Simulated scan of single mutants.
Amino acid sequence: MAILLVGASGATGRLLVEELLNAGQQVKLLIRPGSKVPESCLHNQSITLIRSDFQPINPEVISGCESVASCLGHNPTLKGIYGQPRKLVRDTVRLLCEAIQKTNPQKPVRFVLMGSAGVRNNLLKEPVPFAQQVAIGLIRLLVPPHADNEQAAAYLSRQAGSSVEWVVVRPDTLTNETKVSRYSLHVSPVRSALFRPGKTSRINVANFMSRLLTEDVLWEKWKGQMPVIYNEEF
């Protein structure tokens, strides 16, 4: 069986590919036409590269996959932030879930979505200070990718369907490190993502996502939740 990954050309997605390959997994990469992937992905027998515009997603892409992961995000440019498609992540999550349903899997497919600590888990009615509510409201209006991430998490948690089990991984401020380090996992944020943010290295996010996709005990612990991940401070 294989793991399907979207967003493999991004900074965290590339690291997730490496983590999955190091774990001995077969990986399918669903890539938009024109997106670049590392040269090493083009000649690796453990990787299947599928180019598609995601409109719609052919259920055959999901066939043979027990798990799906998304590290998809908007490019940090004016066009990427304010241009179309505004709902890239949410729409891709929806299309993937619809494709999964059409395959009628014998057991639910694992779906791991990379979100952010600024996305509230409304299933838990997480308390948010008033000042942060106001600030998040402004960000929601002025920075479309944040609203996209919120709606993607909401869709996965409420509308994914019976053929999908899910986890939304919520890192705080992302940093670039070369090695996996110790990290802590929390049901809800223990810091303010706006006023007292923590740090989370991309490689730690990739490591945790890979483990969720491949370790049954860890999956059973976190499925149906939105764990927040921080680098441990020393």
Rank of each mutant, 00 (worst) to 15 (best):
G7W: 07
E220P: 00
S46Y: 01
T103K: 08
R90Y: 01
E98Q: 14
V180H: 01
R86G: 00
A8V: 09
A131C: 06
V164Y: 07
A131H: 10
P76S: 02
H146A: 10
R32A: 15
T178A: 07
L218G: 01
P59L: 12
D91N: 15
V112N: 11
Q26N: 06
Q106G: 08
F234K: 15
S184V: 13
G24T: 01
V205P: 00
S9R: 03
T12M: 05
G118D: 07
N122D: 12
P85N: 09
Q225V: 01
K87G: 02
L212D: 13
S35T: 09
G83R: 05
Q26D: 05
F54A: 01
A152E: 05
E18A: 11
L138E: 03
G115H: 04
E215K: 08
L113R: 11
I50R: 08
T173F: 09
V128Q: 09
I203S: 03
R202T: 05
P85D: 08
P144K: 10
Q106F: 02
G161E: 11
K87H: 13
T12G: 01
R90H: 06
S67T: 14
V119R: 10
V169T: 09
V134Q: 04
R94W: 02
Q101H: 08
V128G: 00
P145G: 07
R170F: 03
N121I: 09
L218R: 01
M114A: 12
V187I: 12
S188V: 15
V93S: 10
G83P: 01
T178D: 08
V17A: 06
N122G: 03
F111I: 12
K36A: 11
S184I: 12
E150M: 11
T200M: 13
A117I: 07
G137P: 03
N231T: 10
C97H: 11
N231R: 10
L42I: 02
S46V: 00
E150F: 02
S35F: 05
G80S: 04
S184L: 13
K87R: 14
K223F: 05
G24P: 00
S162D: 15
A147Y: 08
D53S: 14
I136W: 04
Y155D: 09
T173A: 12
K87S: 13
S201P: 02
Q25E: 14
E215C: 06
F195H: 06
S9L: 04
L156P: 01
L174S: 12
V6A: 14
W219R: 08
V169L: 14
Q132T: 15
V190Y: 01
P108K: 07
T103W: 04
L21C: 06
L78T: 12
A206S: 05
